[in-house]
Design a protein around this nucleic acid. Structure first.
Length: 597
RNA sequence: GGUUCCGUAGCUCAGCUGGAUAGAGCAACUGCCUUCUAAGCAGUAGGUCGAUGGUUCGAAUCCAUCCGGAAUCACCA
């Protein structure tokens, strides 16, 4: 059998059969696995063929079935039911298939897809005023999984982080620290840098609210108070000083951002992610301004009497949009334009993916439209991977109200739960301290990654911190556990591959067939379909189905008990394939696999 | 108000380029560890796929309208 997926192979054969039988070309052929309760390994939909062939489905199915059997390609028997042709492969076919199946070759085939196309993936692009939270974790997990999917498909991936390191929000932390900090540092207080700075951000908000309350007390309206609060006024002075390059302010800015980066780095390292490049908006906004001038000369933008610069996106069904303020300072999109160009100068990427929450969908559309208008060479490859917000049972996470789930805390908690669970189940015996630490890390993190990645990125998702995360059922740990069981089994197996005898007959049962069909779908599940949504959830679903089917097989078929060498080898190979594929799928999701748990 | 996205079991979610009897997991109930790791397996129960029309051999899936929810529409970041 050629090195392609089973379904594709059958599709080609079916096409030539139809051409032979009915002289029809380019027929719509749908190959699928029959639903539960129906016979056959693969099924061909006859309705869509019946019309062009002008033959009733039943008759067409009989003819096609007969033809396929005569081809001697391993189809044993067929059945025509309700407009479907169900084909069953012979025991020998599956045995040979298993013998020849090689996950490494499948990966090679996948790898040929990308042809070294360069794709730059931007994530998670945090602000430097507060630590990472659950929302960032969704972003990071998605970005990393996507990167790995692309890599598996032979793309050349550039991971880029874009740090929002300037602006009012940063000044808030700075102001609070300068006023209330007493020269404390993360080192003197032993607080992780990003948390340390985040605390001052919260302190600013508190101070601000107090000042507003005081002013309202004095008779100001809420709006007036919000504008005239002393800390608010000071904030804008500080921002102006920053823009002017005031040495003192710049020094505080550099110092505090550095603390944050150290904190971020700790979390990134813990999550095993690295970036090929980190961009800072404080560096890119200047290029953005230049590009606005460039676009103004090329009539991409236009200037209003007050000197502000705009772009008309009405032809793109968007609105007129400001790209540079009347005072000449940049807005958010100015920086984005600069960053986009900079990425291209640095990496000449063919595709550029932005992993950003759906709250910025409109912004992204506008940005892409502008870059198109500017005729940027990479404009066609722009893609916004928009993901839904993570909500708590109490509603949206709000940093000001302290209702965020902190990333570091959550990871700690997951590890703790994993450790307790492991002890409870008595699986710690013989594990050294470092081994246990590693195990709890990969299980805890695996549970969280899987929980988040299995849902469609577009959808908002609910996270209930009270309800401790499941470790059974459709979860990361279940997949890890499946791998560990296979690993353990394979260690006990004495491989008789040397004396591999293909001459002995073997019988392949239902549990094995189900597993085989799922294995055969590997390439399709891992293939990046560029015209579709990028969704690591597909990989998660595939892997879960594989593990489920293995579960049944494992329970029903005593692998090592077989005294028929051919059968034993066949079963061991099934186990090997399953383990290897599980490992690959999980690694795409960023989940490590344990050898025992 | 305009635009976009979402409404599937009590809960969390798959399925959506139209195809057979709409699937998992959790929670509930029943079995299975003298047998390769029970973080497992098998089974029971649970549904007007938000509503109504339309397209057709066939609709959870496509189209229209409505209902419900979310996001967004700043010289904020």
């Amino acid at each position: 059998m050629p090195a392609q997926t089973l379904a594709l192979w059958l599709k080609e054969i079916t096409q030539s059969a139809i051409t032979d039988l009915f002289n029809l070309h380019n027929s719509p052929i749908t190959i699928a696995e029959p639903p539960k309760g129906f016979s056959g390994d693969l099924t061909i939909n006859l309705f869509q063929l019946a019309k062009p062939a002008q033959i009733p489905p039943q008759e067409l199915g009989e003819k096609l079935g007969d033809y396929l059997i005569q081809q001697n390609i391993g189809i044993d028997s067929f059945q025509v039911i309700k407009g479907f042709l169900n084909l069953t492969f012979s025991h020998e076919f599956w045995r040979n298939w298993t013998h020849n199946f090689n996950p490494n070759k499948e990966i090679q085939a996948l790898h040929a897809n990308g042809n070294n196309i360069r794709v730059l993936i931007e994530f998670p692009s945090p602000n430097t005023n507060k630590p990472l939270h659950l929302g960032h974790l969704r972003n990071i997990f998605l970005g990393e999984a996507l990167s790995r999917m692309f890599e598996l498909n032979g793309y050349s991936v550039i991971r880029a982080n874009l740090v929002n390191d300037r602006g009012v929000h940063i000044c808030k932390s700075m102001y609070a620290w300068m006023k209330l900090g007493n020269n404390e540092t993360p080192y003197s207080t032993n607080i992780k840098g990003d948390h340390f700075v985040g605390n001052y951000y919260v302190k600013f908000e508190k101070l601000y609210q107090e000042e507003i309350a005081a002013l309202i007390e004095k008779g100001l309206t809420k709006e007036q108070a919000a504008k005239e609060a002393p800390c608010q006024l000071a904030l804008y002075q500080m921002l102006a000083k920053w823009e002017q390059g005031d040495p003192e302010i710049r020094k505080v800015w550099t110092t505090m951002n550095q603390w944050v980066y150290e904190g971020f780095e700790t979390t990134f390292t813990r999550l095993g992610i690295h970036f090929d490049k980190t961009y800072y908006e404080s560096n890119t906004y200047l290029l953005g301004k230049e590009l606005i001038q460039e676009g103004l000369m090329n009539n991409v933008f236009y200037q209003r009497p007050d000197n502000s610069i705009w772009v008309d996106l009405q032809a793109e069904k968007l609105e007129e949009k400001l790209v540079l303020r009347s005072d000449g300072t940049s807005v958010y999109i100015t920086q984005d334009i600069g960053t986009a160009r900079l990425k291209y100068l640095d990496f000449k990427m063919d595709r550029s993916v932005y992993v950003i929450g759906n709250e910025q969908e409109h912004q992204m559309k506008a940005l892409f439209a502008i870059l198109n208008k500017m005729q940027e060479p990479y404009a066609e490859g722009l893609y916004h991977l928009s993901y839904g917000m993570v909500e708590l049972p109490t509603g949206k996470m709000k940093s000001r109200e302290g209702t965020v789930v902190d990333a570091d805390d959550l990871l700690d908690e997951m590890e703790l739960i994993a450790e307790n669970k492991t002890r409870e189940l008595g699986k710690t015996e013989g594990l050294s301290e470092p081994e246990l630490n590693h195990l709890k890390k990969i299980i805890g993190e695996g549970a969280l990654r899987y929980l988040i990645l299995k849902v469609d990125p577009r959808k908002g998702m609910l996270f209930d911190p009270e309800e401790s995360i499941d470790f059974k059922g459709n979860t990361g740990p279940f997949l890890q556990y499946t791998y560990a069981r296979i690993f353990s089994l394979l260690q006990k197996a004495t491989i008789n591959a040397e004396s591999n005898s293909l001459h002995q007959e073997i019988i392949i049962g239902d549990a094995e067939r189900l597993l085989l069909r799922q294995l055969a779908g590997f390439q399709d599940a891992l293939k990046v379909k560029t015209d579709k949504e990028y969704d690591p959830g597909r990989v998660a679903n595939y892997a879960f189905e594989l593990a489920s089917r293995f579960g049944r097989f494992y329970n029903e078929v005593p692998v090592l008990k077989s005294n028929n060498t051919s059968e034993l080898n066949f079963r061991i190979q099934l186990c090997q394939h399953t383990a290897q594929i599980l490992k690959i799928c999980l690694s795409v999701l960023g989940i490590e696999v344990p050898e025992r748990m």
